[in-house]
């Protein structure tokens, strides 16, 4: 049943110095639908694609507000994200209570990173099965961080996680130089275009499946869902992936568990 002898738990190194259980947890992120985040000099934006398990079911929540100055988008196991986001809310509250200061984004991100690392070093625990994009604004400006189950956190100018997010990342890599000076509206549209590129060929962005959140300097974190995103989709114009047949190829590729599938997703991010 197991792929090898070294992937039973998160306290066993493989002869190459890898921890397979952690790498498998990173794969769980790719089972979730895509989320994209990006920052300008004044704003941070999260956009995400929601999924419903069945036609008559509701859509899974993808963006969670933490405080008035920050929030997270998730991909992977939603219950794990709830545990982490509750913890972030506690951190945020205690920062306000103790220091009368909205918690600096980097610190709340590092707090969940440390929490996640412990789960990769002790028997009987499992790593979190969720990736997060944390977007927020603090005294040092807007920030976007990516959190991984390995306990790795990195600050990005633009990032995408979840299923087919490589296509979104490609869009971000081609356009990120325009982000710092982008207006609020331009930034959101960049986010939606990146998200749109991650769609399967027969799918499109709709008011039902798009979640969007904006936070800025002097603008509180606000989540837009349902009809609230209609205006944004109108501004976007085409709601289908512009990548043509490339999307079909990406969709056909099986989700490989080798850890080398999507760039930078293995635990050894330093390598």
């Amino acid at each position: 049943m197991f792929r090898n002898n070294y992937d039973n738990d998160s306290v066993t190194f493989s002869p190459q110095g890898r921890i397979f259980q952690v790498e498998y947890a990173l794969e769980a992120i790719k089972q979730g639908s895509a989320a994209v985040g990006l920052v300008s000099k004044t704003h941070a934006v999260l956009v995400a694609l929601k999924r419903n398990a069945e036609e008559l079911g509701s859509y899974q929540k993808k963006i969670i507000g933490i405080d008035t100055h920050l929030g997270v988008a998730l991909a992977g196991l939603a219950p794990d994200a709830r545990v982490l986001s509750n913890f972030m809310r506690q951190q945020s509250m205690s920062s306000r209570l103790l220091y009368n200061r909205p918690v600096p984004i980097a610190r709340v991100v590092n707090a969940i990173a440390d929490k996640a690392q412990v789960n990769t070093q002790h028997y009987g625990r499992r790593p979190y099965g969720v990736g997060l994009l944390v977007a927020g604004v603090d005294e040092t400006g807007p920030h976007l961080w990516e959190f991984q189950p390995s306990g790795m956190v990195l600050e990005y100018r633009g990032a995408a996680i979840g299923a087919r997010s490589q296509s979104a990342r490609t869009y971000l890599e081609r356009n990120f130089e325009a982000f710092p000076d982008a207006s609020r509206e331009e930034l959101v549209l960049h986010g939606l275009r990146a998200l749109r590129d991650s769609l399967a060929q027969d799918k499109e962005l709709t008011t039902a499946n798009v979640s969007l959140a904006i936070v800025g300097e002097g603008e509180k974190f606000k989540l837009y869902d349902g009809e609230e995103v209609a205006d944004w989709l109108e501004k976007l114009g085409s709601t289908q992936s512009s990548r043509g047949s490339r999307g079909a190829q990406a969709a056909a590729a099986p989700a490989g568990a080798s850890g080398s599938g999507e760039g930078g997703d293995s635990m050894e991010v330093d390598a």
């Binding site: 190194f13 002869p15 190459q16 050894e268 390598a271």
Partner: peptide, 13 residues
Amino acid sequence: QVEYATKAVENGG
């Protein structure tokens, strides 16, 4: 296991 942990170090920057 300690030697394998050292392998992880040898792959790092």
